[in-house]
Design a protein around this nucleic acid. Sequence first.
DNA 1: TAGACAAACTAACGATCGCTCTTTGGCACA
DNA 2: TGTGCCAAAGAGCGATCGTTAGTTTGTCTA
Lengths: 226, 226
Amino acid sequence: MAVTRRRGRAAGESTAGEIRSVALDQFYKHGFQATTLRDIASRVGIQVGSLYNHITSKGELLFDIMETVMLDLLEDQRQQAQEPDVVERMRLLVYHHVRFHGDRAKEVFIGNSELRSLNRQQRARIVTLRHEYEGMFQKELEDGIRQGKFLPVDVQLTAYGILAMTTWVSSWYSPRGRLSLEEIADIYSDMVLRGIWNPAAGQLQTHLRRVGRDSAKRLLAAAATK
Amino acid sequence: MAVTRRRGRAAGESTAGEIRSVALDQFYKHGFQATTLRDIASRVGIQVGSLYNHITSKGELLFDIMETVMLDLLEDQRQQAQEPDVVERMRLLVYHHVRFHGDRAKEVFIGNSELRSLNRQQRARIVTLRHEYEGMFQKELEDGIRQGKFLPVDVQLTAYGILAMTTWVSSWYSPRGRLSLEEIADIYSDMVLRGIWNPAAGQLQTHLRRVGRDSAKRLLAAAATK
DNA sequence: TAGACAAACTAACGATCGCTCTTTGGCACA
DNA sequence: TGTGCCAAAGAGCGATCGTTAGTTTGTCTA
């Protein structure tokens, strides 16, 4: 009997790439545990057993996704950390954190919700990378406080708060939503800076991108005439 | 042959209560999908089949937990919403959101991470309750902006941000940590108010609980003399 | 003391899981 | 035109899952 065998490849993507991309979708939609290899295989258009020509295990597939996105994020943000002014540096970190979390929402969401599904060594590796990343924000807060630009806030709590607020973008952002990713990133960077700015260090205005800059006079005037 | 049969009850808790409490722990630690009824049963000290004298299904057990915590949260916060001053009202909402999310971290964490594991009707119900809750924060923001107390920020994004930051407390808070839950709640309420306060409406100081109130002079002086 | 009832037990069903192993098809290259 | 090899198919293993059914036990009540 003639057997229909999958031939050739989708344009520009290897089977391994397809598997990774389909797994990403399914892990994002249904979670790692609820996603079966049979589901992934059928969406790629191959049989379950054939998956193992490309992956070593289901768990390793998850780990690859999570490690890749963390390494990419760290690399992106190390670029921003070269800005000399501490306030601007913090603004850039927040801004690009939001951008990254919107652009790569699925991977990031998985990275934040599937730590439990990793084995001990895998989890240790990811946790190390995450600590390293959190450290970047804590360092900027400490710098800013030392320079008198930021209020002497609790560094750990503030970093957690900033990261939580901006990371959450990955769970609701849609490219077809009311606001562009750039607008969202601007709004959140402004909010963060206002939340930690030390009034004794002068005006924050020059660092803001939306409320308080171009539109500042209009907005404040509107509020005052109420 | 004599069979050892589970007799009596743990002090003060019914079997149904024990099941719920054990399920809570396991769903929190390993997630819903990764938790088996055999695991729950063995921790309660009964056989798998016996569970069904107390639950209707595994999924219903999850839904019960998620609905209960949302209803309790809504009830708690409706109390706070009676405060007449809008700034203080917002502060109380944030403060009690943090307290609730620390006190009932496990339930809340499950509520935020297991939406995917519910069926269609269950999910619709929980989503409705969550929308209702988010609405409380959006309403306060609108009120505050209308009164000129808050900057004319994007209401939806700001509400999302506030809720994300404060909800995240449930994933790291420990009663044995460096800060008490009350301190954490104070710090975050202050941060939120600073982030949305309209300078044209005067001083924020009287509404703050930590930075900017008792310790304000010292902190600002320290920053200024740098 | 008999009977009703709640709640435990045991056993097993059917489905599905991740994964392994063997076989087979078809393309690149000699 | 042959040949080697990669990647597919396909069958199936052993374990485990949620759930159901039937039975047994202990206790409270009439």
